[in-house]
Write a protein that binds this DNA or RNA. Structure first.
Lengths: 138, 138
DNA sequence: ACCCAGTCGACAACAGTTCTCACATGGCGC
DNA sequence: GCGCCATGTGAGAACTGTTGTCGACTGGGT
């Protein structure tokens, strides 16, 4: 039997107030910061249960950390500055359709995708150029 | 300067004889099994160097392990079956253009992106359906 | 041959995740 | 409402994959 505990509800509540992907550790830190006493293990367990239930979506970051998000939130992607980390959320119906179509053509069902765009934002690009005025290396 | 060492060549050689994705640890084990004395750190370093050079392609498995494979240099994306791991390489000029355009609109330069499509391939979907003929759970 | 920067490899350190186990508690029968 | 007990909790240990450290080694330019 699955019990309805304070902690599990709290984890759900956190994801309700957040948009986008967040790691289990981040959620745990947030709850602790908010004065909510909860164990890290419990966050992991709750998050996994939620993924099992299909209420959360999980992917892995580049460094192997698992991040989760509420499924129902609007689907979007991230445009991340590789220098300062600034993130812009972008939507792309074009991409969604393309991904679904391509997957379908290969007989795949229940399709999800992850797309992250990395670049250097205008501000950081200026800085880099200033630091290396004439990049005539080697 | 990048030196041409026995170990680095050996790692490349291993990937030449393998198809599909393989973890650094697996490559290390394989080399050791083949009587090739090499350190785990060295395998990691070699593999990362190869990824930097664009000679290997890396993604993360579901449990956070990094896996690599020899990769054609042409830019493409992966359509991965979340059940059996079967991978199809797909290309999408549409997506490339979309990503560049969106990034440009936000002032980002030197843009790269990662896109992975996950789904259940036709074969695995049949198996799942067979295993749960009438999903009247609870 | 000599030099030395780049490399190697055993091992330690580290981060994220999972496991353990004693204790707490939700929910059911009463 | 009360008690039982299966289930959940939480602190910390353990585990796993990866990265860092550091003394020894070596490829290759001179």
């Amino acid at each position: 039997m699955i019990r309805n505990t304070r902690q599990r509800a709290a984890v759900v509540a956190v994801f309700d107030t957040l948009d986008g992907f967040h790691s289990a550790q981040e959620v745990h830190a947030r709850m602790r910061a908010a004065g909510d006493s909860i164990g890290l293990s419990t966050v992991y367990r709750a998050v996994q249960a939620l993924v099992d239930d299909g209420e959360l979506d999980s992917i892995r970051t580049d460094n192997g950390e698992a991040i989760y998000r509420r499924c129902s939130t609007t689907h979007h992607h991230h445009l991340v500055c590789r220098s300062c980390g600034r993130t812009v959320e972008v939507e792309g119906p074009t991409v969604e359709r393309w991904a679904d179509r391509v997957a379908g053509e290969h007989g795949f069902v229940d399709v999800k995708h992850t797309l992250e765009i990395f670049g250097t934002c205008a501000a950081c690009h200026r800085v880099v150029n200033a630091a290396e005025p004439a990049a005539a290396d080697s």
